[in-house]
Computed example of a mutant assay.
Amino acid sequence: MITFEEQLMELINKVEITPAKYQDIQNLYSDLHNCLRNIFPDCKIEPYGSAITGLAFEDSDVDCFISVESTQMKHLSTKHNNDLHSHLVNDTKNILRKHKRIFKRVTNCDVSFKNRTEIYNSQLIYFLIASDPRLKPLFQFIKYWNKNLSIGSVSSYALVLLIIFYLQQTCPRILIPIKELQRDKKFDLYVDDWNCGFDNLSALPKTQNTSSVFTLLRGFYHFYEDYDFADNVICPFAGKSFRMDDFNKLDNLLPDYQRYVNRVYDGSTKHFLRRGVNVQDVFEHSRNVNITVGNMYLFKGHCQLAYNKINNAIDNNEYDNIVNALLNQELGLAVMARVKTRLNVKSSQS
């Protein structure tokens, strides 16, 4: 009998990024830097996303932040430098086309001059995953499972936050609330007035949870098949859910969100915006990492189906094809009908 762990490792070996592809990405960053420093001599290329978190697949997007002095950006944006700007854009496009031919599969490269918080989000995710050898294969499988869904998948970043939050709720818990990594003020690092620093030198507390990857995966599906997304906000920073009403009564968020509350009161940030599904960013606390209502119901349906498949495998002691069964699942007409009914009800209430 082929165990779940053996099937999982066989899948990961097939889909995770290869050393050759990783080197291609490094070459892309180097060429991009050489192009940009002709105009921005002090610029830096700072990768983020799956290439940093360790969750990249062969066909994953490539993400990088271009760190440039604000005075240089203003200089470039003047009308006098329109030709220079056009030259920069064309050179960058040519570099991306060159490397697109190198990659075996189509890869998108997202180049950003804004939102530096993504860099520290990625570093935090890497730190958390590296804290326990069970976590990387767990994250990799759930991410690939989500990517493989024909409908109802959620964004990679939102999914990672859902996994982190679930691991904060296990009993015993595996991951601590992010706020506990910000107790030591010497690690404070402010980006756009949000604290994106965290203690990455101390080891996380050793968990007493000894569950296998298979058991944790089953628990993930069970947790989210029943989770009340509509009225709760998922908050990995605090390591717990808040009722949506708490974000309308700011004092209910104290002491966890003192900085957020202060910034709302002084007008330097907006209120956390309620959406169909509410997942709060780990550092930028006014940001809702949005999942559409339709995808939320579909995602819950997929979690329910996956949980049932795992239970059937356990009941019948049949694990030989469990990974393929999970990756090739499709929601039945009954589930789709329930999703449509819920969406219609939600629409009539709004």
Rank of each mutant, 00 (worst) to 15 (best):
F4H: 03
L11S: 09
I12K: 04
P41Y: 03
D42P: 01
I45D: 03
P47D: 01
T53P: 01
L55S: 06
F57D: 03
V62R: 00
D63A: 02
I66C: 09
S67L: 13
H80C: 08
H80Q: 14
H80A: 13
H80S: 13
L84T: 15
V89H: 12
K93E: 13
R97M: 13
C109K: 00
F127K: 10
S131W: 02
R134M: 04
L138D: 04
Y157C: 07
V160T: 14
L175Y: 04
K185R: 12
D188T: 02
N195E: 06
C196M: 11
A203I: 11
K206E: 11
T207G: 03
Q208G: 15
T215K: 11
E225L: 09
Y227V: 11
F229S: 00
C235N: 10
G239V: 00
D251N: 14
N252W: 07
L254Y: 06
D256Y: 12
Q258W: 02
G267L: 05
R275Q: 13
E284P: 03
F299N: 05
C303R: 05
D315N: 13
N316R: 15
N324H: 10
V335N: 05
R338P: 06
K340E: 15
R342Q: 14
L343R: 06
V345W: 09
Q349W: 13
